[in-house]
């Protein structure tokens, strides 16, 4: 099972978003990112989606910009390199159906008799 945060890190891995290899140079991802931004601006069909180990995802200009910014930061890039290098078999596990975990249920366990009810709503 993959926790949502990890799943998102895989889905939005800059190497997948930009379609470049983890060992690419800075100039390569800058050029590729620029090209993708130009193609998205003119709505070219072939760049609207990209492939990830979790399936096809939608590519947006925000995602491309964010990916380029992430790869410019050496420590952040390292993190993405590690994730991009994970064997596919480890990533390709089915996601369990998850309950809704929005803010409203943050205190749910407290109602179960644990802890106190926060947010000043008592």
């Amino acid at each position: 099972m993959i926790l949502p945060r990890i799943a998102r890190a895989i889905e939005e891995n800059p190497f997948y978003v930009l379609g470049v290899r983890p060992e690419c140079t800075r100039q390569e991802f800058e050029r590729e990112g620029q090209k993708l931004l130009s193609m998205l601006a003119l709505d070219l069909a072939e760049v609207r989606t990209y492939n990830t180990p979790l399936g096809e995802r939608t590519r947006t200009t925000e995602l491309v910009r964010r990916s380029m910014a992430e790869l410019r930061e050496p420590s952040r890039r390292l993190l993405h390199e590690i994730l991009a290098a994970l064997p596919q078999s480890e990533i390709h596990t089915s996601q369990p159906t998850r309950p809704e975990l929005d803010d409203r249920w943050v205190n749910a366990p407290a109602l179960f008799g644990y802890g106190r009810f926060r947010e000043g709503r008592q």
Partner: peptide, 17 residues
Amino acid sequence: LQYPAMTSDLSPYVVGR
């Protein structure tokens, strides 16, 4: 056209429709 009007890249892309 979409292209970088100023760039450090000596081989930039020009995309057009």
